[in-house]
Write a protein that binds this DNA or RNA. Structure first.
Length: 711
RNA sequence: AGCGGGGUGGGGUAGCUAGGAGAUCCCGUCGGGCUCAUAACCCGGAGAUCCCAGGUUCAAAUCCUGGCCCCGCUACCA
């Protein structure tokens, strides 16, 4: 009985997460935790949403709401997605909790008391107009190296030179356009350099780490560790627990505070469960093992900075045993990016597919050592030809054959011949290989060995050909079926950590009433009781047919029902409104030229058709993230109206999460009013897709003539 | 620009730190078998200058040097 801490990276509560997050954190962590629970180890799996951080404030600014509104919304979305994925935390928490705040501040104070945090004065760009400090990248100006006018304070995007914000010629605040001034500011620094030697010693016996993790860590150590600022000049985050007004406008840097969440969440879990000291078993017992599931961008934070914090806080604390960070899962060879709207989004995936299909592909294609790529075709193909054709098909043929020919019961095994014995031996071998790979966080290999058992099952079934001697030798036939069902049973147990839903379905189909997840790992080797009644239902997995509509040009668009929440005048334009619109799971700001045709009162609370995947653009200085669709008939403008009862967020045309499209490309596509005010998408061929919600057509309001364009 | 990772049959990959026999596996493709099974399963074949050029060696996909190309991080992204 080992103590295993499964620590999962904290996703930002700033927007929906993509499959890359799941592949790096939730999925491997859950497989690992489930495996160890089955082995009988005491697992504590914790994590939660990172409620702080710049991305959340950026989004909140865009929407014109307080950051906690955004954070709470996405925390709830993450929690739901995690549950839908079958990922089972002991505690899925969030960093806005007062207990986290208190504990994080206590760690901070302790480090300060021990001299591992000290105060330093540094010079930062300060915007006098907005009365705040500016992050380097919020300063823009002309690059001193190449003369590029749009260079940012951290780096010139044109020539790639790294910059200091004060090097820029004609520097300007990105928000206010006025020149920033250098101003001194005090920050707390974490004395990482003081831990150089101890960290080198800590790394010395980490030969089991994945090579990219080890090399990134070694590279940092080789360069020499630098002290890091531990605070930021922002107002969204955890307050710095020092007296004095100078700290009032500063917050603990979110990265530091979030990693502390592993410790604070462990405490919280046991506090909630009435044993407030029990968390220590995972943090002070030298035999306990900690595993951190993260992406590659976080490696040194978890292999150097976090251990240093722990050493500094209390040298008796357990340090990470392994940090099985993944590389990135790209989308068609390109990086997934929330900012650029490119990715495969979890809410979308979960709506469309069996969570086990997602887990299977994510694991089979997990970027353990180098980047991998998500390809829709590959996703469908692997589901259909591996998960379904090998595993699903094997258990289904065994189940249906026994159900039809053996009175829906598990037949008895009689004399085992060489083939039967070999099958049982292979079962044990595969079980062992899966377990060994899981011990070392080799999830891809583990899954491959599991699916290999299904292949061996198919080979066995074919070699035995029970259908041939069903009549000739019923006993031998029954034996073959018994062994096949025994293999199926083993598959249910072995796949349980990877594919929790289908494993339970199979377990139930094999006649068990309890939970496969309650089985010990060793139970994969147990025999199946003869005579047990089977419950054959639908096959385990469904085929994934990527809709043919994927070829439709309309799929370049993502048009959804949205509701206008708020309308304001654009400060610098006579014809434009600035609106906040609700898309169900998010809010956005858009700019639209409606002022000559609609009053604010007419627009407020109205449902509209929103082109959601238009590239964001600044219209007269205000960012617009999407476009309200309306018909244009000369000076007359008529909004495209969804039915009154259309749910907000529902898809009208195209594909949810379609890649961002430029305004120019959108102009090349054709949307028109026709047939008495209905709205159609016209493809380049004969394609003519009406805009609908359910069975209801969308129409333009007012008297927009048929044939008028929509944009 | 710096740092890190990578370039292996049509696609995706293993092998590479400890160099050695026909270069692994999955998919696709071609041919055959089976018909219990979601046209699923099983068997066999074809298909690779292992990015390029040098070097070390009896022997290199594997080690060394140089080059080309891709990607990531350094920047609100696992």
């Amino acid at each position: 009985m080992a103590k295993i801490l499964v620590a999962v990276a904290w996703p930002y509560a700033s927007g929906p997460r993509h499959i890359g997050h799941a592949v790096s954190t939730f999925i491997p962590a859950d497989i690992f935790a489930r495996y160890h629970r089955m082995k009988g180890d005491e697992v504590l799996m914790v994590g939660g949403s990172d409620m702080h951080g710049t991305p959340t404030t950026v989004r909140a600014d865009e929407e014109g709401v307080p950051p906690e509104v955004v954070a709470n919304r996405y925390h709830a979305l993450h929690a739901r997605n995690i549950e839908q994925l079958g990922v089972r935390y002991d505690l899925y928490w969030n960093t806005a909790d007062p207990n986290h705040k208190r504990d994080a501040q206590e760690i901070f104070r302790t480090l300060h008391g021990k001299g591992f945090i000290d105060d330093r004065v540094m010079t930062s760009p300060y915007c006098p107009t907005g009365d705040h400090f500016l992050p380097d990248r919020y300063v823009e100006g002309t690059c001193p190296h190449c003369g590029f006018a749009g260079a940012r304070g951290d780096q010139c995007e044109n020539c790639g030179h790294l910059l200091d914000p004060f090097e820029l010629k004609e520097p300007k605040c990105r928000i206010h356009g006025t020149p920033p001034t250098p101003r001194e500011t005090k920050h707390a620094f974490f004395r990482l350099s003081a831990f150089q030697k101890r960290l080198e010693a800590y790394i010395a016996n980490k030969g089991h780490w994945r090579s990219p993790v080890l090399s990134a860590t070694r590279a940092w150590l080789a360069e020499g560790l630098l002290d890091r600022p531990f605070t930021r000049d922002i107002d969204w985050g955890i307050e710095v627990p020092f007296p004095g007004d100078e700290w009032k406008a500063k917050r603990i840097y979110v990265w530091f505070e979030a990693v502390m969440g592993y410790l604070t969440a462990s405490r919280e879990f046991w506090r909630q469960n009435g044993q407030p000291e029990k968390w220590r078993e995972w943090w002070y017992d030298p035999t306990s093992k900690q595993y951190y599931f993260i992406g590659k961008d976080n490696i040194v934070f978890h292999t150097l900075i976090w251990p240093a914090i722990l050493m500094g806080y209390d040298e008796k604390l357990t340090l990470p045993h392994d940090v099985p960070a993944t590389q990135y899962m790209l989308i068609s060879g390109e990086k997934m990016s929330a900012g650029r709207g490119r990715g495969v989004w979890l809410p979308d995936l979960l709506e469309r597919f069996d969570p086990d299909a997602i887990r299977y592909y994510a694991t089979a294609n997990m970027p353990e050592l180098k980047d991998s790529s998500f390809e829709w075709e590959d996703f469908a193909q692997r589901n259909n030809s591996e998960l379904l054709a090998a595993y699903g098909n094997f258990v289904h043929r065994a189940l249906t054959f026994a159900a039809r020919n053996f009175d829906n019961r598990v037949p008895e095994a009689q004399f085992l011949d060489a083939q039967d014995k070999a099958m049982v031996r292979k079962l044990e071998e595969q079980w062992k290989k899966v377990g060994q790979n899981l011990e070392y966080c080799h999830f891809r290999d583990a899954l491959r060995e599991a699916i290999q058992l299904a292949r061996l099952g198919n080979q066995y079934f074919d070699a035995k050909a029970p259908w041939e001697f069903l009549k000739k030798d019923r006993e031998a036939c029954g034996t073959a079926l018994h062994v096949s069902l025994q293999v199926s049973r083993a598959l249910a147990v072995i796949f349980a950590p990877f594919l929790p839903f289908s494993s339970q379905r199979l377990w139930h189909a094999l006649g068990y009433d309890d939970e496969v997840h309650g089985q010990p790992w060793q139970a994969a080797l147990d025999d199946i009781p003869a005579g047990q009644t089977l419950r054959v239902g639908k096959p385990l997995f469904a085929k994934i047919e990527l809709e043919e509509a994927a070829e439709s040009e309309a799929d370049r668009l993502d048009v959804r029902v949205a509701q206008i929440v708020d309308v304001r005048d654009h400060p610098n334009a006579d014809k434009l409104y600035v609106m906040n619109v609700d898309l169900g799971d998010e809010r956005r700001q858009i700019v639209a030229g409606m002022k000559e045709n609609y009053t604010k009162g007419e627009l407020r609370d109205r449902k509209i058709a929103l082109l959601a995947n238009l590239q964001t653009a600044k219209l007269r200085g205000i960012e617009s993230n999407g476009m309200l669709l309306a018909g244009e008939d000369g000076p007359q403008v008529g909004i495209v109206m969804p039915p009154e009862d259309a749910p907000v967020g529902v898809l009208i045309l195209g594909r949810l999460g379609a890649p961002r499209i430029s305004f120019e490309d959108f102009r090349k596509l054709s949307l028109v009013v026709d047939d008495g005010g209905k709205v159609f998408f016209l493809g380049s061929g004969h394609e003519r897709v009406p805009l609908k919600v359910g069975d209801a057509f969308l129409r333009v309001d007012k008297g927009i003539r048929d044939g008028s364009p929509v944009r």
